[in-house]
Design a protein around this nucleic acid. Structure first.
Lengths: 342, 342
DNA sequence: CGGCAACGCTAAATCCATTTAGCAAACCGG
DNA sequence: CCGGTTTGCTAAATGGATTTAGCGTTGCCG
């Protein structure tokens, strides 16, 4: 095993020389197309053996250059620190590998400059398509891709300039709110919404769904019950603490807009005694295995990561420039949700 | 903006033609080396302008082929589903970008075949170095790298054939056990260790540290108190449930070997009443923001991801074939740990 | 006004794999 | 034994960027 001498990587020329054949023959044999070119089986095995003992490995740079196919599948995403994003990357990677690509996932920490830089980098490495995940304004990135003639899809946050796949935020929010409503005894309970960013697509959609579910039961919601306190845990903590002080306790129903806001809320919740949660029901539009096991009832929604990625691939595979559909994938109840006894 | 016509990506030849110069000149100008080659400023700006309006982007495949430098930095890791791994990728990516590389992180789900395949793929894309994270047996992968003449480091689990960076498992386990011991009143409390795989480096090291801390206080530990039940949550759950039934309650001190085992344990814990945790102390050799806020005292260790990655880069930068040092990075207490009042 | 240097740029080789066109030898039928 | 086919392989062009060697001009000095 090991390398030849240790300096340069071996090439098809090395194999050609060592087997007394030509680079063309070697290429055909290694690509498995040799039968079509009438290379004798003897030569083929000789070359294959040589390649194996020398530890040959194609140079994708050279191949990609020749074929104008890099074999690279690109994705950018904010970070990996929750199950939703982690699941999206892992599912994307598996899908890319299954389709013969090498996945290239890069996190950009929600910084627009980094997003731009990374997309440019990925394009210069000739990724064959790009998944853009959780980007607030994907338009400039979509623009970059179409300038480079590379198909792309937006995941999680939609854009007008590329096909997009998002969770059915309205429907999901309605479902989650209904579950909370089913559990609550009070005739017209106090309901609050926590987290998210004003004007952001997912936040506003979920608020619409939340309001719809309440309205269907004749509950109208004052604007003051909606707390778009962002995604940063400390501000979410502050926001819920403030609300608690004002109400003199937790609201009967609390809709938390993301796992990150929930992380902040938890920091406050743990300072409360157990009875503070009596008759209170909390729902979260995201899922985490630990958050699901807290000492008070939490209903969590799990976004359907697998379906979202599959839909993304399908958009890429049937790509038509100028056509920018939007798919909404319904979320599911988190695995820890226990049905209310009828 | 947008692309020229839409079909092929533009090249330095296009720019050369459109500006009435040669590809050589264009290359020099775009690389910023034109002053050294006495290109006039007028020509330079002309080319730069053309490049900007056409939306030119280097083809890293071609450049990489010529320069034998791909600009790619590779990493493989099991998955992104916990803060340790997520932190390792994000820190690696930031480090790679800061050094002018494009990071390429791929998850392999702890499957040896996938690990091998992915490493081969990354090598064929000519990554300039490779971080190998959390691989039980990195030897064949290190072998692959050295055959390709690519420097690599092992992170989290060490190997004899490449430099390695791991957490100081023994020291960390000792520290964590000491903290538990400080809190427990009973003179000779029942201590148990849960999780991990028999024979695995990190598991065995942590068990050594755990025993050392107990021995230092005169507590000797029967082998039956060590439960190497793997990392899969369901088996961990089963294991702790079984233990609870046998003891008629939780042990006074419980050392949980990983966040994954903890995830399993939690599923059982939530079925217990609050008083089941009285006088019990739990430590976990890993950190998670939600796990840190459970309704019983948990002390969590946070592995020093930043220091580990930095050390990895330093090994790569001072790479000498045949030299395989091992660095042990001390872990820190998780941010939620509250010091015992003196 | 001849000769040399400085100036501004270009031709061409190179990196490695792929693929088309085609060459030389063996073989076949008549 | 000749023309034609089949067999088995190779030469050479290609893709895009980099870089060395060098070419034609102009400017300057003596």
């Amino acid at each position: 095993m090991a390398t030849a001498k240790g300096q340069r990587r071996s090439t098809i020329y090395d194999i050609a020389t060592s087997t007394g054949t030509s680079p063309a023959t070697v290429s055909m044999v290694l690509n498995g197309t040799w039968q079509r070119y009438r290379i004798s089986e003897a030569t083929a095995t000789r070359i294959l053996d040589a390649a194996r003992t020398i530890g040959y490995n194609v140079n994708m740079k050279a191949r990609g250059l020749r074929l104008a196919r890099s074999g690279l599948a690109g994705m950018i995403m904010p970070h990996y620190r929750n199950r939703f994003f982690a699941g999206l990357s892992e599912t994307f990677e598996a899908g890319a590998r299954a389709r013969g690509f090498c996945p290239m996932v890069v996190s950009t920490q929600r910084k627009p400059e980094t997003e731009r830089e990374v997309v440019e980098r990925l394009l210069s490495h000739q990724v064959e398509f790009l998944f853009i995940v959780g980007v607030a304004n994907p338009d400039p990135l979509n623009e970059l891709c179409s300038a480079a003639n590379i198909p792309c899809v937006n995941i999680d946050l939609p854009g007008a300039n590329a096909p997009s796949v998002v969770t059915d935020n309205q429907g999901g929010a309605r479902m989650l709110t209904d579950i909370l409503l089913d559990r609550i005894a009070a005739p017209e309970p106090a309901f609050h919404f926590l987290g998210g960013v004003a004007g952001e697509y997912a936040t506003e959609e979920r608020i619409v769904g939340f309001k719809q579910a309440l309205a269907a039961r004749g509950i109208s919601l004052p604007e003051s019950h909606i707390h778009r306190c962002g995604y940063w845990p400390p501000t979410a903590r502050e926001s819920i603490e403030h609300l608690h002080d004002k109400l003199g306790g937790l609201p009967a129903g609390l809709f938390i807009n993301s796992i990150t806001a929930f992380e902040g809320a938890i920091q406050f919740f743990r300072t409360l005694p157990a009875q503070a949660f009596e008759g209170r029901f909390i729902g979260c539009f995201d899922w985490d295995p630990f958050a699901a096991f807290l000492p008070f009832p939490v209903t969590m929604l799990r976004q359907n990561v697998e379906a979202m990625i599959e839909q993304g691939f399908s958009y890429i595979e049937n790509y038509r420039a100028g056509d920018h559909p939007l798919t909404k994938v319904p979320p599911k109840l988190g695995p820890s949700h226990v049905k209310v006894p009828a």
